[in-house]
Amino acid sequence: MAATALAIALSLVGLAWLTGTDPKRRRAFRLPPAAASHPRAGWAVALLPGLALPFLAGGGGFVIWIGAVSVAGWAIAALPPERTARLAGHCATLIGRITARPARGASSPSGDRIAALEARILALEARLAAIAPEPAAGQVEPRRSSSSLRSA
């Protein structure tokens, strides 16, 4: 059953891509053409998992895949673009939160993550300094570096 569920999930990713980039749908909703469409690749992602299922999960898995993709494909396509975009935003936030959360029992200590964040802040400060003009003395309070933040 795990193979069937995975195949359904993969196919839905393909269908979501096809929905988002479909030229007729974009025309109907007066959206600009998609920057990158790749409909063949989208159809391949949508259909190939199902073609592998008879070998991985038997005929039953294959039939469930067709049924589930029919229903969920309709559900995806039936959402108007603004709702799809909102849903995609929520999904991206959720995935971001999940991936940002440390895995239970992970071996990397929290100190490493703090060090990585400090390095990132330093890099961003350096970029900012390179872009921004030099402030006149006394006009702006000097920025506190990440090391001073740690010592505070």
Binding site: D22, R25, A28, F29, W74, A77, A78, L79, P80
Partner: peptide
């Protein structure tokens, strides 16, 4: 992949039926 067009128009009703029927 053409969802129901808004505005309560006839074409929206057609879109809805055609989409769900096709799938």
């Amino acid at each position: 992949f053409v969802a129901e067009r808004g505005g309560g128009r006839l074409v929206g009703a057609r879109d809805r039926h055609a989409l769900v029927s096709s799938w």
